[in-house]
Design a protein around this nucleic acid. Sequence first.
DNA 1: TCTGGGGTCCTAGGACCC
DNA 2: TCTGGGGTCCTAGGACCC
Length: 393
Amino acid sequence: MSTPPPADPPEGLPRLAPPAPRPDRWVLYIDLDAFYVECELRSRPELRGTPVIVGPPPSEGPTRGVVLSASYEARKFGVRSALPATLAARLCPSASWIAPDFPKYEAASREVRSLLHHYSDEVIPFSIDEAAVPVEAPNADAARAIAERIQHDVRTTLGLPASIGVATTRVIAKMATDLAKPAGIRVVRPEEVAAFAAPLPVRAIPGVGPKTDAILRQHGITTIGELATHRPGEVGAWLGGFGRELVALARGAPSDAPESDEGPRSRSTDRTFAEDVGTWAEIETAIHSLAAELAHSLEKEGLRYGAVGVAFRWSDFSRSQRSRTLSAAQEGAAPLGELAVRLGRELWEAEQSARGRAVRTLSVRTERLTERTQRQVSLDDFPPASGSAHSAL
DNA sequence: TCTGGGGTCCTAGGACCC
DNA sequence: TCTGGGGTCCTAGGACCC
């Protein structure tokens, strides 16, 4: 009664194609549209349909800050994320400005993730406003139906618009999402991947930024379809391992890198001075206060650090950094501040004997984070011996 | 126009060890 | 005399993402 298993190809013959992804496994990539703005509109519905910008309000004086999020009405004026706020104010004088409220956005992001858990055991967050959700569905139409339910659910129960890309790999699902914006759904079947990608600029591939784009352009490549006509080894020679992956993707066989381990790898905090700083005393003071801030937030997260780094952004916007690994994980502000000041001093003195640029932005970073699962044993862990002067107060 | 504040991953050279 | 080869850790820098 039992059917024989399908015959393997004879020894020595190459497989005709790489193993196909399981046809019932789909990835839904959810991207919340104009996320910070939409979070604000939940409590300011009267602003809906008007230009709204989340960022440092120009009414509070000149700033070196940038736009964090712009409503689609504001985008019509050329306003977009990362645009200097002063310029955005000039492009779109009628915009309503709202100062960012990150705890509010974090809370909304958690609401969305917990809703997504109704649809999949696995919710892979990629940023505050993006997450991938693997689901099982017998075919593309069934996968689309799940995406429609999620989109409807997020809008009606949380009041947030989302765009969703659907594919059998994460990277194609993400690229599909970008084309679905705003508030759309885009499905790419596995056999459509190469045709879907071919007309898109190489810049549409996650991980291809201005530098990679320029290198490819030098070789006459602007679209993903053109990329597909080159040999992996050729593109690999220009771009390393990443170049080979790009060709595989262009030919319809993207490889999804495994998700990184859970838990943060680093934590940092930085400060851009209102005006560039050229004295060590000012820098030292700022390093101490950043270190204290960072130590406090690590404490709240229950994390220890195994390495410390300091980075300067100079007045010409270039960066230098120095880091040091500790012999053992530490916690608290004192060791962090001490080492950060030492590293900062090294950077500063090297710069003084070289070019003498002033500091625009100062950043203090901790790396090699580990959970503080057990407390350091301290004297307080032992009850005072009777008659001891040690007081519990 | 003059560029924030977070993060992640990759590469490459030197130190060090066997 | 003529100096291997491999593995891992550390550090600095670069590119990219939201």
